[in-house]
C-alpha cells in the first residue's frame, strides 16, 4: 500500500469551507457598508471604504475561525481517517489561499462601489484611513487594544498590490494566533490556554509594529526611533509565523480525539 496524499484534499476543503464563511462575513459587511453609504448620502458623514471596513473586521473574523479550526476540525478529519499531519498541512495551504482571496474580493467590491458612486455622481464622502496609534503614546494597554483594531494599513488607491499583501499577511497572522490559542486550549485546558492568549497578543503586536515601522506608519512611542527595511520586517514576520505554526504542530501532533 502506498501512502495516500490527503493534504491537497484537506487544503481545498478548508479553503472552500472557510471561504463560505468568509463570503457570509463579506456579505454582512457589504450590507452594513450600503446602509452606511445611504446614511452618508443624506447627512453627509464620512464613511470608510469597503476595503478599510473589511480590513479591520477581518482580523477578528480570522481569529475566530482559527480557533474553530483547532477545536472542531481535528476530530472531523481524524474520524474520516485523515492524519493530524495532513490536516495541519492542508489547513495551512487552504488558509493561505483564503488570506489572499479575501482581500482581493474586498478590493474588487471596493472598486465596484467606487464605480457606482462615480457613475451616478453620488455625493458620498469616502474617508481615507488614518492609523491613529500616535494618540496612544506610551500607554501599552491602549497600544495593544488599538493595535488590534487599527492594524498596519495601506490605502488601496495608493498601491494596491502592497495593500492586498499587507491585508493578507495581517489576517493570516490573526488566523495563526487563533489557531494557536484554540490548540492550546484543547490540548492543555484553560490555564495554559490563557497563557497562549497573552502569547497571541504579543505575536499580533510584534507583527503590527514590524509592518508599521517598515511602512512608515505611526507606531507606539517606544519604537518611534527604530527603522527597519520592509524585507527584514517580512522575513521576521514569516519567522514568527513559522514558530507559531511549529508550536501548533507540536500541540496537535498527538491530540486525542474525544467525543
Amino acid at each position: 500500500m502506498k501512502q495516500p496524499r490527503n493534504y491537497p484534499k484537506v487544503a481545498s476543503d478548508m479553503f472552500f469551507l472557510q471561504g463560505t464563511w468568509a463570503s457570509g462575513f463579506l456579505g454582512v459587511m457589504l450590507i452594513v457598508q450600503i446602509i452606511k453609504m445611504i446614511t452618508s448620502y443624506f447627512n453627509g458623514n464620512e464613511v470608510n471604504t469597503f476595503f478599510t471596513a473589511t480590513f479591520i473586521a477581518s482580523n477578528i473574523f480570522m481569529l475566530v475561525i482559527g480557533i474553530i479550526s483547532a477545536v472542531g476540525f481535528i476530530p472531523h478529519y481524524v474520524s474520516n481517517g485523515i492524519t493530524r499531519k495532513d490536516y495541519f498541512k492542508g489547513t495551512i495551504i487552504g488558509t493561505i489561499g483564503l488570506a489572499l482571496v479575501l482581500p482581493i474580493i474586498s478590493a474588487v467590491i471596493t472598486g465596484a462601489i467606487q464605480l457606482v458612486i462615480n457613475l451616478f455622481n453620488l455625493l458620498i464622502n469616502l474617508e481615507s484611513f488614518e492609523n491613529p496609534l500616535h494618540e496612544a503614546d506610551n500607554h501599552i494597554v491602549a497600544d495593544i487594544i488599538t493595535s488590534v483594531i487599527f492594524t498596519p494599513y495601506i490605502e488601496l488607491s495608493s498601491n494596491w498590490i502592497a495593500a492586498i499583501l499587507v491585508f493578507a499577511i495581517n489576517i493570516f497572522t490573526y488566523y495563526v494566533v487563533g489557531w494557536l490559542i484554540g490548540a492550546a486550549f484543547s490540548r492543555f485546558g484553560v490555564i495554559v490556554g490563557l497563557l497562549f492568549i497573552i502569547l497571541g497578543f504579543i505575536v499580533v503586536q510584534v507583527e503590527d509594529i514590524l509592518l508599521s515601522i517598515s511602512l512608515g506608519l505611526n507606531v507606539p512611542g517606544f519604537v518611534d526611533e527604530i527603522e527597519i527595511p520592509i524585507v527584514i520586517s517580512i522575513v521576521a514576520i514569516l519567522l514568527i509565523l513559522s514558530i507559531c505554526l511549529w508550536l501548533i504542530r507540536q500541540l496537535t501532533k498527538r491530540m486525542i480525539v474525544k467525543f
Binding site: M1, K2, Q3, P4, N6, V78, S79, G81, I82, T83, R84, K85, D86, K253, R254, I256, V257, K258
Partner: peptide
C-alpha cells in the same frame, strides 16, 4: 482508530503502527 495512543504496549495493523499512518487510517 488512532483517536488516541496507548500509554504502554503496542498496536499494529498489517504490521505497522496505525497512529498517524495515512494509508492505514483511511481503512
Amino acid at each position: 482508530a488512532s483517536f488516541r495512543e496507548p500509554s504502554s504496549g503496542s498496536i499494529s495493523i498489517e504490521g505497522e503502527d496505525p497512529f498517524e499512518n495515512a494509508k492505514l487510517m483511511q481503512h
